[in-house]
């Protein structure tokens, strides 16, 4: 058994010891996880962002245009002093402006227009049979949207529609929760498999 498997097995058991109660071994493993994650991310970001995208192109290749993003980046640190804090608004404005400019058209397309398009499907298939799924989607979208329409009181037929919409919401939340439980169980099963096979060699 190699050293990495032993370390991983011991740390997995240290983390699982929290299920009994909080203890120093768990704290040590938790701190190690956070420290290693941050350290690893810092090294990766430093080399791939600061060095590869700024230091090398600017100083080794002489791409002087990079001085502008460098200055904008440095201005972000002006927030730490009350007298210079307002200078940080400039890079933030650039980030928000460019970010919104790039994001709005594509998000409108992907999250709104294409979703609306997928909602308005033919209710009868090419073979002449009713498409139940398309009908459920259409009714679900209309009823759920009516629940979020607050300019009119939720009474009468409109109130019933809105209430029906909440059922679709509950179905969604239930499904999402079920999948989340499945996800967490999968994580536990994955670690159990590691402990039983790689670490303890009890299963193949």
């Amino acid at each position: 058994m190699d050293i990495s498997t032993i370390v991983a097995g011991l740390l997995t058991m240290a983390i699982l010891s929290f299920l009994y109660r909080d203890n120093p071994v768990y704290k040590m493993a938790e701190s190690l996880l956070i420290g290693v994650s941050i350290g690893y991310t810092l090294v990766i970001v430093w080399t791939t962002t600061i060095v590869d995208l700024m230091i090398l192109p600017l100083f080794a290749e002489g791409k002087l245009g990079l001085i502008i993003p460098l200055i904008l980046g440095l201005l972000m640190f002006s927030r730490f002093h009350p007298k210079t804090a307002s200078l940080s608004k400039l890079p933030i404005a650039v980030m928000i402006g460019s970010g919104a400019g790039v994001a709005i058209p594509v998000m409108l397309e992907a999250r709104t227009l294409k979703q609306i398009s997928a909602t308005v499907n033919p209710l009868v298939s090419a073979s002449g049979t009713p498409d139940i799924a398309a009908l459920v989607v259409l009714i679900g979208v209309l009823c759920t949207l009516s629940y979020f329409y607050f300019s009119r009181e939720h009474t009468g037929l409109f109130g019933q529609t809105a209430k029906f919409g909440t059922w679709f919401l509950m179905l969604f939340f239930g499904t999402t929760f079920g999948y989340t439980v499945m996800s967490r169980m999968s994580t536990l099963i994955g670690r159990m498999e590691f402990l039983l096979s790689d670490f303890l060699h009890l299963v193949d």
């Binding site: 979703q115 997928a118 999402t176 996800s183």
Partner: peptide, 17 residues
């Protein structure tokens, strides 16, 4: 994806994105 993300991506799958 992880199971927890399936419901997030189902609408994208249904809309052929």
């Amino acid at each position: 994806v992880t199971a927890a993300m399936v419901t997030t991506y189902d609408p994208y799958l249904a809309s052929n994105q």
